[in-house]
Design a protein around this nucleic acid. Sequence first.
DNA 1: CTTTTTAGAGTTAACGTTAACCCATAACCT
DNA 2: AGGTTATGGGTTAACGTTAACTCTAAAAAG
Lengths: 345, 345
Amino acid sequence: MSDDKVTLAHVARLAGVSMITVSKVLNNKGRISEATRARVLQAANQLGYVANSAARSLRGRPTQILGMVIPELVSPYFAEVARAAADSASQMGYDLAVFTTSRDPERERERVGTLLGGLADGLVFVVPIGAAGFLATLERSRSPVVLVNHFGAPTHLPVVRADSFEGSLAAVRHLIALGHRRIGFVSGAAHSSQAAERLRAYRECMMAAGLWDEQLVRPGDFTQGRGVEAGHELLSLENPPTAIFAASDLTAFGVIAAARSRGLRVPEDLSVVGFDDIPAAAHSHPGLTTVAHPIPAMARAAVELIARAMAGEKVRDVLIEFPSELVVRDSSAPPPAPGDRRKSP
Amino acid sequence: MSDDKVTLAHVARLAGVSMITVSKVLNNKGRISEATRARVLQAANQLGYVANSAARSLRGRPTQILGMVIPELVSPYFAEVARAAADSASQMGYDLAVFTTSRDPERERERVGTLLGGLADGLVFVVPIGAAGFLATLERSRSPVVLVNHFGAPTHLPVVRADSFEGSLAAVRHLIALGHRRIGFVSGAAHSSQAAERLRAYRECMMAAGLWDEQLVRPGDFTQGRGVEAGHELLSLENPPTAIFAASDLTAFGVIAAARSRGLRVPEDLSVVGFDDIPAAAHSHPGLTTVAHPIPAMARAAVELIARAMAGEKVRDVLIEFPSELVVRDSSAPPPAPGDRRKSP
DNA sequence: CTTTTTAGAGTTAACGTTAACCCATAACCT
DNA sequence: AGGTTATGGGTTAACGTTAACTCTAAAAAG
């Protein structure tokens, strides 16, 4: 009942021809008579033959597969990136093989090797926090590689990324324009260059407006849980903020949860702005004011860049940067009039 | 500057040893002197050597990679399944390679072949609408395979799935218990067996309660857009429903949007219940009453099953079914008192 | 001082597929 | 008839890696 692997040899024997003939039929190469072709296809079907892609790719054939290495799929941001890329790839006739690495550098290296070592024709590498230590290796590789959201060490590899600075600037300016003077900030993970950009924008803007106060900045890690903690920390200050800018939407949700648990209303008592514009931001109540990365556009650009590289085009040193954009929803409003604010316990 | 692929041979030449020695060092096999080992590692590093996984797997070595073939990542349900599986796999020391097929049967076959043909040690196949036509082929394969959410033709392959019937029953009963008598239903995609189960539960429950009316059932396709349309259709009936059960959360959001655009409040004027419990369901306003599949548990079960199969255990004919569960939030409430309801234009 | 053991390295062959040739046969020219 | 060209198909030799041996020299045992 259960054969082992079915190989070309099995099909060939059943069809009464050589392996090569089978290979030619299956790849539509060379000249084969209709009769032989039919016999081979029938035999292949009967045996349930499926080509061994490892052997095939070892022989140097393109696989029509694009690889993606991404830190994780758990956070909505990365999930969005993966699905957008899968979409774009599919539209261009490629399939996307998505690998997660849990941010383990050893795994990153391995997975990149797996993909470039024959499995995939090209690689989209979504750079994790802290960037990869083996970009040099990647540069040396002949295979087309595109880095997504790389902000680290300079490289000749093509990069597609979304700006975090301008969008963050817009967010803080928005809050200042609404009349806020005490604006808290919950930052992203320590080694994320995206997080650094967001903090830099906040700092620059606050300093320029003469509103800078180190107490208003709390470390974060992009998670919701940390948002809750940081929210409580900020709201416990003796001169608490009337608005909080969080470096991710999840963190912003955490801040909102913290505020509510203290009896504060959003946005009447506290304005909250997030970053990422994950789908939940639009569906939450109140709708979350946030900064959006154009993820589908980025994904499309990355896939297109890969395709161009595979077509032989030179893409060294290409850098495509997408602007981030402030999306104003309902979680930001003017600060409460002095004395009008509910006191948090 | 740019070498071609770096192979064992290159490393071997640089280190002044044979390829085999290099292989042994890199795989920690055989006896190698410390001096040689160090020399080889240094050479490998210097050249940026990465093993060619195609060749390696061709040779029969396990890859520590689990494959997942899934229709798409665009809908939150599938995205959740993928991320949960990646999580479980990672915890068990495996990596998950996720392939999307856009529901193209040809592609499914190809991708399954790619994965089983050396790339992956096992396969989690999330069965698309209408099931796969090549389960027989899969059954014959020696590689461990688990089907997720398979409801189609009987198979000996192990299956992990979530029930849709009981949860749907609970949802409709919940609405009836609240006092609703006119309960609409927007179904899922035509060929989805999950959708069929949900419809079957609705029909059975409504008939048992003497509330069945064919007019109240509208075809759907799991999308939000179709939810909007179907919502309008149902609310335009001369005797419109006071509650609508949608076969997916996205569709439910569409129904809510339709209701709001007609000036109806949810849940005061119209109760809405979804299915899936996607993350947005918890964050939306009002929180969506819905039926939850225990996706993380399913994913874990699937991965564990694969692991057991790889360990040699017999898993033929295993069927693990998880119950679905009604999650009551704020989008369902008693129907408005007669005459009290806002009229939709 | 010979024999046995063992550490350390190398040889051979094979995994499944296919590119690049090569070899028949038959049909077509001049 | 002798040569040329299609046509249909087979041979050979890799792709990069590694399992299972084999070989060598030196250390340990007798």
